[in-house]
Simulated assay, not measured.
Amino acid sequence: MPTYTYECKSCNNIVEKIFEINVSPNTIFCEFCGKEMEKIIVPGASFILKGGGWPGKDSKEKNYRQERNNELSDVMNQKREAGESVTKISDLKKVK
């Protein structure tokens, strides 16, 4: 259910009201001064998706791994072409 925020222009009282999606009252009155309140727009909350399985997060990680594997393959091929042996990951330091 959506949350609406209202502000009283008379006493600056701010309240949040929760209504069903199909119900949005035309007028809300301030509980302190009794005057009509105005609906205000509040920016949405930000949040961070943690853990795996979220679109975007997993694809970025997958792309990073793929790019890293491609780099290592390129370095391995360059070393082999130069006649050097590659037997472990530490041998795969970038060729200058």
Rank of each mutant, 00 (worst) to 15 (best):
S46A: 09
N63W: 10
Q78A: 15
I18R: 09
T3W: 03
Q66L: 14
E81C: 15
G53Y: 03
C30W: 08
F32A: 04
Y6G: 02
E31H: 15
C33E: 05
K79L: 13
F32D: 02
K79V: 02
R65F: 10
T5H: 09
D74R: 13
I14V: 01
R65D: 03
E20W: 15
S85D: 11
K17Q: 08
N26H: 02
T3I: 06
L92N: 00
N70L: 15
E16L: 13
N12S: 13
L72H: 09
S59A: 06
R68V: 07
N12K: 11
N22Q: 05
E7V: 07
I28K: 05
E61Y: 14
L72T: 04
K79F: 02
V95M: 07
I48V: 05
M76H: 11
S90G: 12
L72P: 06
C8P: 01
L92R: 01
K9D: 11
D74C: 10
E71H: 15
V42K: 06
V23I: 12
E61Q: 14
I40M: 03
V75C: 11
G83H: 03
D91P: 05
G34M: 07
R80C: 08
D91R: 13
N22Y: 07
E61D: 08
N63P: 07
E71G: 09
E67G: 05
I21G: 07
Y4G: 01
F47K: 12
N69M: 15
N22A: 04
K50T: 06
N69A: 15
N13W: 00
G56S: 01
T3V: 06
N13R: 06
K50A: 08
C33D: 03
I40T: 01
D58I: 13
I40C: 00
G83N: 00
N22D: 02
E81L: 15
V15N: 04
K93A: 09
G51S: 12
K96S: 09
L92C: 00
E71A: 12
A45R: 06
T87F: 14
A45N: 00
A82S: 12
S85W: 10
S85F: 11
R80G: 01
